[in-house]
């Protein structure tokens, strides 16, 4: 591991050379390949890319949820507070999940059991991990609901999930995730299903809670706008591997990888009076990856050399990019 922007000073999460495979009709296919990065204590890191790029699978691997989805971690190492998560058995992993690392998913409705009240579920989570009586746990749950901005928490605690709006359900999920004060929160598209004004509320809440509790956040999203407003560092994934890492400001101001630049150029609203500049084609399927750079067939800056050898992730002044031309290209960012 070279010391580029994917390493952190006091890492909570360290991922090294992670590879994940899933069984498909084409046999075992590597969906995440050689992913390495770190998340520092109290830091917010964005993991971005388009659907199928492996960002969610990476998050699932940290949570130890790959096996139940008929996949396997074929290589690499995941350490949380220095402890090797891949060496843990499923009971130990359950102990870690919710206590040390918690998660918030995209679809609040499917992540909460519709058959139980909000309070029941929160009390259960608390008591599974912490030595608490039922009434203590309930008291704590009311405090948590209050903290995530749910009005009238004494009444809401006895609501069933379907009685809450989408925004409120996501607040409840956040309250549940934070109940044991985890060191790391993994938020997988936490606001994608929400309206913009509700999204703004939830992101604001998350930022406030993080500042207060000092936890690290790994934000998995496809939304570049959300990343730019919430994250300190960004990791860009394409076709299962990291193509660029940088601090948020650097990444948006001056992307090094043509894919990052092309995604920025695809955003409507940045230059409203100019036509959009879409990336042609689609992400290559896993079983038919091009021989050279995986972005080469869609890249407008590709040269002959790009088609032959697969590039490695190279450190470029405190950040890194997987592009042969990272040094000589001057790609446009969002500007100011």
């Amino acid at each position: 591991m070279s010391s580029h922007a994917s390493s952190a000073v006091d890492p909570v999460l360290q991922i090294e050379d992670l590879a994940v495979e899933f069984i498909t009709e084409h046999g075992w296919l590597t969906v995440v390949d050689g992913v390495s990065f770190e998340v520092g204590r109290g830091e917010t890191v964005g993991l971005i890319g388009e659907s199928g790029c492996g960002k969610s699978v990476t998050a699932m691997a940290v949570l130890g949820l790959i096996e139940q989805r008929s996949g396997r971690v074929s290589r690499g190492c995941i350490r949380l507070d220095g402890r090797d998560l891949l060496a843990l058995d499923s009971r130990e992993m359950r102990e870690i999940r919710g206590r040390k690392v918690a998660m918030v998913f995209q679809e609040p409705m499917t992540s909460i059991d519709p058959a139980f009240t909000v309070g029941n579920q929160m009390v259960e989570v608390l008591r599974r991990h912490l030595p608490m009586s039922r009434s203590q746990a309930r008291q704590r749950s009311v405090e948590l609901l209050d903290r995530v901005g749910i009005t009238d928490p004494h009444r809401r605690i006895d609501s069933f999930p379907h009685e809450l709006s989408g925004g409120m359900r996501q607040r409840v999920l956040i309250a549940m995730a934070l109940s044991c004060e985890p060191d790391l929160l993994i938020a997988d598209e936490p606001t994608t299903a929400l309206d913009v004004t509700v999204q703004a509320q939830v992101l604001d809440l998350l930022a406030g809670l993080q500042a207060e509790m000092g936890m690290a956040v790994l934000l998995v999203t496809h939304d570049l706008g959300v990343v730019s407003e919430t994250c300190e560092r960004v990791i860009v994934m394409y076709a299962g591997e990291i193509v660029e890492t940088a601090s948020t400001d650097e990444l948006f101001a001056r992307p090094l990888h043509p894919y990052t630049a092309a995604m920025l150029a695809s955003l409507p609203g940045l230059h409203p009076d100019e036509p959009l500049d879409p990336i042609p084609g689609i992400v290559p399927p896993r079983h038919a990856l091009p021989p050279g750079c995986w972005f080469e067939p869609r890249c407008e800056h590709a040269i002959e050399l790009c088609g032959s050898g697969h590039p490695t992730l190279v450190a470029v002044g405190g950040r890194s990019a997987r592009c042969l031309r990272a040094d000589d290209l001057r790609l446009p960012g969002v500007g100011s």
């Binding site: 009709e25 959009l276 879409p278 042609p280 084609g281 689609i282 290559p284 399927p285 079983h287 067939p297």
Partner: peptide
């Protein structure tokens, strides 16, 4: 943006299940 660009953009059909 011309129509020709679109033609290019979808030439690679997902080779999934045919």
């Amino acid at each position: 943006m011309t129509i020709a660009d679109h033609d290019m953009s979808s030439t690679a059909v997902e080779s999934a299940t045919t």
